[in-house]
Nucleic acid binder design. Structure first.
Length: 312
RNA sequence: GGGUCAGUGCCCGAGUGGCCAAUGGGAUCUGGCUGUAAACCAGACGGCUUAGCCUACGGGGGUUCAAAUCCCUCCUGGCCCA
């Protein structure tokens, strides 16, 4: 893989903290010298616009956005695919002599790029057998993992089927321990990318989240989902898990009353914000800012230094 | 006004004399996870000077060695009759 020629910067934080607006503003001020890369596990799906708070058409005309609308919601997207796309996009941006600003709240996707994680391959056949075996005794699988890769086992919860199966899949499939692919997410390496964190009180965030979701409803979120549902393939396994979409799908596909689903969507968005915050809080390398102004100052500073251009 | 059913911890909701600080779900908090990550998994969840103690099952009173559970009464809500 080609090493990006220009260092990049990342803006992280919980949903509704104002990251996107800030990033856009910063890019505008840099007058085309900075391009944005979305780090959003749901923004990669084409047509899922309202509920993922995607930039508007006008915003996309003003600033270059990357890593959005990569696949159809019927497809299953993964971290490793994201990593590949991100590397390619960043290389192109670097070739153009521009700075790259990552913005988004999907922690793992961010780590994959920022820390250049070595994500082990997939072994579908092995996985299939493991999943079948997990059905009649997860405990046995975990014991096997303890045998084959005690380190990986120690990092996992024995009851987390998805992760236990994955660790075994890789260990058996690649003939080398799952844990040999990396030191674990708790191990934070040196700063390769400056991460600026934008956060605010949950009192404000919670309120904003609800208002925002209700606004999306008014703008036709339900219709957007209905349309995607009717499209060939409909929603795939991963896309349908998106907060907001999942709840409204329950209304459209099942019989759940709309208002109850809306309330639940709001609640789950709030929880998402909290989980995002704790994910980023754990990373000691993130520089936190509680207000947009100082976060912006820091972003501009890093971008200018890194890219050797100075703004007035 | 008469009858009847109900009132449980932040919310919903089990529990009908001791094994009940009280099943379960939700919310909330904390933690973990390198190919589903907006997913997935786990722990905590009345208070405290935490092998124990205190406060709690609408209020008050009573029966009992022992009550969220039985009796009386009051308050509140639903339904039925007037």
């Amino acid at each position: 893989m080609t090493q990006p020629s220009t260092p990049s910067v990342a803006l992280v934080g919980p949903t509704a903290s104002g990251k996107s607006a800030l990033a856009h503003e910063v890019a505008l001020e840099c007058e085309g010298n900075v391009e944005l890369l979305s780090v959003d596990a749901m923004g990669v799906y084409r047509g899922m616009d309202l509920g993922t708070a995607k930039p508007s058409r006008r915003e996309r005309d003003e600033v270059s956005y990357h890593l959005l609308d990569l696949v159809s919601p019927s497809e299953e997207f993964t971290v490793s695919q994201f990593q590949r796309e991100a590397r390619a996009a960043e290389a192109r941006i670097g070739d153009a002599g521009h700075g790259a600003l990552y913005v988004g709240g999907t922690g793992l996707y961010g780590r994959a790029v920022i820390d250049d994680l070595d994500i082990p391959p997939r072994y579908p056949e092995i996985r299939r057998t493991l999943e079948a075996r997990a059905a009649d005794g997860l405990h046995r699988l975990f014991d096997e993992l303890v045998e084959l890769d005690p380190l990986a086992a120690s990092r996992l919860e024995a009851t987390n089927e998805r992760r236990v199966v994955r660790a075994l899949e890789v260990t058996l499939g690649s003939q080398r321990p799952f844990s040999s692919y990396g030191e674990g997410l708790l191990n934070y390496g040196p700063v390769r990318v400056v991460q600026v964190g934008l956060d605010s009180d949950f009192a404000v965030l919670d309120e904003r989240i609800e208002r925002r979701f209700r606004a999306w409803m008014d703008q036709g979120l339900l219709g957007e989902i209905e349309g995607l549902l009717r499209a060939p393939g409909g929603f795939g396994r991963t896309a349908r898990q998106a907060v907001g979409y999942r709840e409204l799908l329950r209304h459209l596909e099942g019989a759940a009353p709309l208002e109850a689903c809306v309330t639940e969507a709001v609640t789950r968005s709030r929880r998402l914000a909290r989980r995002q915050r704790s994910w980023f809080r754990r990373d000691p390398r993130v520089e936190w800012f509680a207000d947009v102004t100082s976060a912006k100052r820091r972003l501009l500073e890093v971008l200018s230094v890194a890219n050797g251009f100075v703004r007035d």
